[in-house]
Design a protein around this nucleic acid. Structure first.
Lengths: 137, 137
DNA sequence: ATTCATGGTTACCTCTTGTAACTAACCCCA
DNA sequence: TGGGGTTAGTTACAAGAGGTAACCATGAAT
């Protein structure tokens, strides 16, 4: 709306010496955030809440995930020690997925993320509508 | 290691009636998680901690982000009402990005995610090493 | 003999993301 | 007067992640 009105930059709010964590692409934190911040891992961890789930159960529950991406995502989470995979040698096959103790500690903070989105979804929807209305003028 | 040993599935741990939130692909929570859980938004929000930053400052700070993806990510965050964009009509241009009040509330939970990764990075590195060793046998 | 169920894998195609070059606007400096 | 520098972008194209659909193995049930 009134973007770029003629106030001068104040320079007062910027470059305060806030704590700056490591953002290098190859650092551990980034590599873990990349895993958490991929398309499906958040969902999987959020769903494995205090219980194990079978492959097909996860697939049915997570709307839109493909069989391939569920396999890939679960393998990555297993590799990171966040999810355990238990194969029972029965026919038809049965594979249970469950959060590890480490995964449980992550679940808590991810749950708070989900809760945040639930709490603020209308605010975001409003913001989006306002932005879109402004742009399409 | 001892995957698929001959224990029978107990059926005891599964399908407890845990609270099941909406995972439909088109629901608000999913759409917001998709934004938060993309490749760069988490990083941007985490960095905009109590201060505004200029475009180039963000670009220099976030290792590996391209100019294009920074633009795209910031526009999406602006659209969602999480980040505000202030253009000063000076030459060379100056654009400040800052968390909105809504963005600040999200920053808190994202910060806890970053803290989690910092706390558990060695555990994850260990798990990865163990997994990789097992697989390459 | 055929069908069904589960938990995958594979080949292929599409859509998102990354790369690199280009632009606009004005200042500085010789 | 004109060449170079600055910032915040945009654009065209290449690379990589993700989606789609078909296939496999196993044995039980019909």
């Amino acid at each position: 709306m009134e973007e770029g009105t003629s106030k001068e930059p104040s320079h007062s709010c910027c470059t305060e010496d806030a704590f700056q964590w490591d953002t290098r692409e190859d650092c551990d934190v980034r590599q873990i955030l990349d895993r958490i911040g991929d398309k499906w891992s958040l969902l999987v961890i959020a769903l494995l809440d205090n219980r194990c789930m079978r492959f097909t159960e996860l697939k049915k529950t997570i709307d839109g995930i493909s069989q391939r991406m569920l396999t890939v995502t679960l393998r990555q989470l297993e590799r990171d020690g966040l999810v355990s995979r238990t194969v029972y040698p029965v026919v038809p096959p049965r594979v249970d997925y469950e959060l590890t103790p480490l995964g449980v500690t992550l679940h808590a903070t991810i749950q708070s993320l989900v809760t945040w989105t639930e709490t603020h979804q209308t605010e975001i929807a409003t913001a989006r509508a306002r932005y879109d209305a402004q742009v399409t003028v």
